[in-house]
Design a protein around this nucleic acid. Structure first.
Length: 599
RNA sequence: GGCCCGGUAGCUCAGCUGGAUAGAGCACCAGCCUUCUAAGCUGGGGGUCAUUGGUUCGAAUCCAAUCCGGGUCACCA
């Protein structure tokens, strides 16, 4: 139990004893960290009790304070300032907290429960390489998977690859027309980029054809349908669905190039999956569910044979679930996949990391499943995130205005190289170590930049201003960690020291404010972790980590550790920084960010 | 138009289950390296928390309306 909730319960108990017969609910008791300008560690707000207890705040505060001090081992003193009861927790409590946890590499984690969660993320189309927006999705999904694991869930990381459909046919058509047999091997271009180039080529050609047709007097809607290259793409899609051998072979070859490219990118990004679904395997799955829905009369058929659901009672619209010709739409396959996932893994929760433009879609998906009485419905959760935009607006791969993910990674690694070199910090590293270090710093900066913002907010990214390695960044946290490691190296203390190291520590002197401040922050970590899990929000962990690193830097500047004023202080401070480094490592590990021991 | 989301310092963002004088980072200004890593630390300027009204002892936070920005409402995915 956290110290804050211990205090809450102690206060509840105190009030019930002091004012028997008065209904005090624990939810009325507000406990916050005391503002730095006042003495004390935690504050109980007295205003909510005034009416109920018919007393002045000073009187309630005094009674409550006296009671807590007398009956509870936790507190050393209290002070009442205009309606706020500021309680000081005994130093001995903080020190024993520190001694109990400072070597625990899993501090903050919850024990494994029988709760199975799938988190689907990444889910790329196979017609183009990953761009900056996909990175947000990938990092969010990977971070949430780790956070959910750390908070006791059994997590399945899933990727649903959109490997079929008109988009990939477009790349195929353009490749057949213009590539003259070019392959990743023959051109030296990474497979996903090569295929993406032909997707852009398709759209260039398509635009020209539309222009040519409208110039001859065709109206634009018609021209969009009639453009020969588009007809070719649609023709290809039909052949694909019919299982045409040649088309399937080409499709497999080009997708193969893309997967090879993706694998490289994923590896570099540190992204992995436990389960990969392919849309080409799952796109037909929903039809059974639709038939069942018709039988149950949850769905209805229109004259042309198309199948719909009526959601107007829920304030939504009618939604198409099956085309008139019996072929499935996006929603059809999502229904099938949702059920497949549930049946395969007996999921308690199924999380979809998908951009907020699909809020409506997922809402409808969940609603349909509910109406069909499918048990998977309740577990569906949409981790909706805002899109990454450029100062000029949305990124559009068709128009080539995207910031490419691979480019961005290289750029960040270069930036970290430049910065390290210009500040002359390359000394004492081998060439190999430097390569690793630049990777650690560059990737860390990128991940942190995308994870530090509340997922549901959209981001505007200005590539010209690039990304900083100062201030609220992973670099800042990495630097604090490296400083701690440097001290520990000099003191010959391993990163995870055995528990016997400071066992004989006896505290005699008072904690300095900065010492206590860090211990208080460390105590909060489990709470931060579980809030991040509950709110599906990794940014709170970024925020916390930055603040903790900042506290350490201030502390480091104000107090010497190696040359502390006494051996007692030195031991205490070593324990503090060992635990600080450990928590930073833990938190950043969840974000997929490594912390170097030297930088 | 219906539904959903956002609007906090010049910029990027915390804070939003109501609590003390609204916080960081960047940028700007002034200091701090014979002492454990200056990718750091300290201090400073900078705010009608979109607007209006309401609830409350107390509102950036809750409610209502309005304004601005975005998303979505396809036999696309």
């Amino acid at each position: 139990m956290t110290i804050a909730s211990q205090i809450k319960h102690a206060a509840e108990d105190a009030l019930k004893n002091l004012y028997p017969g008065v209904a005090i609910d624990i939810s009325m008791i507000g406990v916050n960290q005391t503002k730095p300008e006042f003495a004390g560690d935690y504050t109980i707000v007295l205003f909510p009790f005034l009416k109920l207890l018919k007393q002045k705040p000073d009187i309630i505060g005094k009674q409550l304070g006296d009671y807590l001090l007398q009956k509870n081992e936790l507190f050393s003193s209290y002070e009442i300032v205009s309606g706020f009861l500021n309680l000081a927790v005994k130093d001995t409590w903080w020190v024993s907290f520190l001694m109990n946890h400072f070597t625990d590499a899993h501090y903050g984690e919850k024990s494994k429960a029988d709760r199975r969660v799938m988190i689907e993320y990444s889910s790329p189309n196979t017609n183009k390489p990953l761009h900056f927006g996909h990175l947000r999705n990938n990092f969010l999904g990977a971070a949430m998977a780790e956070i959910l694991k750390a908070t006791g869930n059994q997590v399945v990381k899933a990727n649903l690859i959109n490997d079929r459909g008109i988009h990939i046919c477009k790349s195929m058509v353009a490749w057949m027309k213009f590539a003259h047999g070019a392959t990743p091997e023959s051109t030296g271009i990474k497979g996903d980029h090569l295929v993406g180039d032909y997707y852009v080529k398709f759209n260039d050609e398509y635009k020209q054809e539309i222009a040519a047709l409208t110039a001859r007097g065709m109206d634009e809607k018609m021209a969009e349908k009639e453009a020969p290259i588009m007809r070719d793409a649609q023709d290809l899609l039909r052949k694909w669905e019919a299982g045409d051998t040649e088309v399937r072979e080409l499709w497999q070859m080009m997708n193969g190039w893309v997967y090879k490219g993706f694998d490289e990118s994923y590896k570099r990004l540190g992204i992995s999956f436990d389960k990969v679904y392919y849309e080409s395997d799952t796109y037909l799955l929903g039809k059974k569910i639709v038939e069942e829905g018709l039988r149950k009369k949850v769905l209805f058929k229109k004259e042309d044979g198309s199948v719909w659901i009526d959601l107007t009672d829920e304030g939504l619209d009618q939604k198409l679930l099956l085309r008139g010709d019996g072929t499935s739409v996006y929603m059809t396959q999502d229904l099938g996949t949702a059920k497949l996932k549930y049946d395969e893994f007996k999921l308690n929760q199924s999380v979809y990391v998908i951009a907020d433009e699909q809020n409506y879609h997922i809402q409808v998906l969940k609603l349909i499943m509910k109406k069909l009485g499918e048990p998977c419905a309740d577990g569906i959760y949409h981790l909706s995130y805002g899109m990454v935009e450029l100062p000029t607006g949305k990124m559009k791969s068709r128009e080539g205005t995207v910031v490419d993910a691979d480019d961005m990674v290289s750029e960040m690694i270069n930036l970290s190289k430049e910065q390290t070199e210009t500040s002359g910090k390359t000394e004492g590293f081998s060439a190999d170590e430097l390569v690793k270090l630049y990777e650690t710093i560059g990737m860390g900066a990128l991940k942190f930049y995308l994870l530090r913002v509340d997922p549901k907010k959209k981001m505007i990214f200005d590539p010209k201003e690039s990304i900083d390695l100062h201030g609220y960044t992973a670099t800042f946290i990495q630097y604090a960690h490296a400083r701690i490691c440097s001290i520990l190296r000099k003191e010959n203390i391993p990163l995870s020291p055995d528990c016997t190291k400071f066992q004989s520590f006896v505290q005699t002197s008072e904690l300095a404010p900065l010492e206590k401040k860090i211990i208080l922050a460390l105590e909060e970590y489990p709470l931060i972790l579980s809030e991040a899990a509950d709110g599906f929000n990794p940014s709170s962990i970024c925020n916390y980590s930055f603040q903790l690193a900042q506290m350490f830097n201030t502390f480091y500047d104000a107090h010497s550790i190696s040359k502390a004023e006494s051996d007692e202080k030195k031991q205490l401070r070593l324990m503090i920084i060992i635990m600080t480094a450990s928590v930073l490592r833990h938190a950043m590990h969840l974000m997929g960010i490594k912390l170097p021991e030297k930088m």
